[in-house]
């Protein structure tokens, strides 16, 4: 059909992307244009393009109309840009009987993420502080169990938690899910805070004790103000982690409380109806937008978060 046209359009699209991706190429000023540099930058640019490809395809697909998708090439930029898929994904897409779009899932996710992040960080920072500065008998043992717990597959603990939450009367509610997120976020966050508080000079703590400050006073007036960066790191870690969660959302909530990821999966993988790929991609992008924005805004802190979470300091 319109092969040459769409092809040249692809090339134009790639050209338009190139400067944003790679910036000025070539060797450093003081180095010669060596074969080594060409190899390094060439490889990196190719790899970077490969990594960016899915994001690019998501964006262009979500801006096309269905007829254009059926006829065209997925890599081609949209001929006629339409925001209709985004509107539909946000406000009209159906899951089961509800047809109010992803907005419901979005607000559910917000209502899950905000309290979960606050509660889990509050608990874990106090834990980490107690472990670092107020070592009591048995503290190390509980901490070791907690860290080992991070490796236990969630599937092992899913059902006992269902029973526990049911006994407490909060199974299927947002409160229950918030509690679950706080529990499973605890190992990594406690580790993060413990390592951070251990790295602070102990003299500070001792001086405060000599001056007669107690557990909470030292925590609130000395430790908290000194550890804002680590709180930000923990927040990034938790917001992305909880926003991206699927398993707990599907196990511990009911359909009208499903978080965004679960609702997205139900919309895209629903069997009935004609597949609207542009709406699907718009919905997928919408769901990925929150963690992506956090990632691109936070930059180095995000890296620090995963490094601190992954490699024990």
């Amino acid at each position: 059909m319109s092969d040459p046209a769409s092809l040249s359009a692809t090339v134009a699209g790639a050209d338009a992307m190139a400067p944003a991706l790679s910036g000025p190429r070539g060797p450093k000023p003081r180095r010669r244009f060596s074969r080594r540099n060409v190899f390094i930058y060439g490889t990196l640019i190719v790899v970077a393009l490969y990594y960016l490809l899915p994001l690019y395809v998501m964006i262009v697909t979500s801006l096309k109309g269905m007829p254009e998708i059926r006829l065209g090439n997925i890599f081609a930029p949209p001929v006629e840009i339409t925001f209709q898929p985004w509107v539909k994904a946000w406000a009209e897409a159906c899951t089961g009987l509800n047809c109010d779009g992803l907005s419901r899932g979005f607000w559910n996710s917000v209502r899950i993420t905000v309290p979960s992040v606050i509660l889990s960080i509050a608990i874990a920072s106090v834990n980490g502080y107690a472990l670092a500065n107020w070592r009591f008998k048995g503290a190390d043992m509980f901490f070791t169990i907690l860290i080992f717990g991070a490796f236990i597959p969630y599937q092992v603990m899913l059902y006992p938690l269902v029973i526990l939450l049911r006994e407490m009367g909060i199974y299927g509610t947002l409160t229950g899910l918030v509690l679950v997120h706080s529990i499973f976020g605890m190992p990594i966050l406690t580790l993060l805070f413990r390592n951070y508080f251990t790295s602070l000079p102990e003299e500070l703590f001792k001086a405060a004790r000599v001056d007669g400050a107690g557990f909470w006073q030292i925590y609130l007036q000395i430790m908290l103000p000194m550890s804002l960066p680590i709180f930000v790191v923990a927040m990034i870690l938790q917001v992305t982690g909880i926003w991206n969660d699927f398993l707990f959302g599907v196990v511990y909530t009911k359909p009208d409380l499903y978080p965004m990821t679960v609702q997205l999966n139900n919309i895209v993988n629903s069997v009935q109806g004609v597949k609207e790929y542009n709406v699907n991609m718009a919905a997928t992008l919408l769901t990925g937008l929150v963690p992506l924005v956090i990632y691109f805004v936070s930059g180095k802190l995000f890296v620090r978060g995963i490094a601190a979470g992954a490699v024990k300091g």
């Binding site: 790899v47 991206n244 963690p291 990632y295 995000f302």
Partner: peptide, 12 residues
């Protein structure tokens, strides 16, 4: 660029 997919969920 190489790390951004890690910020996305497995569902996405």
């Amino acid at each position: 660029i190489l790390l951004y997919p890690f910020a996305l969920s497995f569902i996405v």
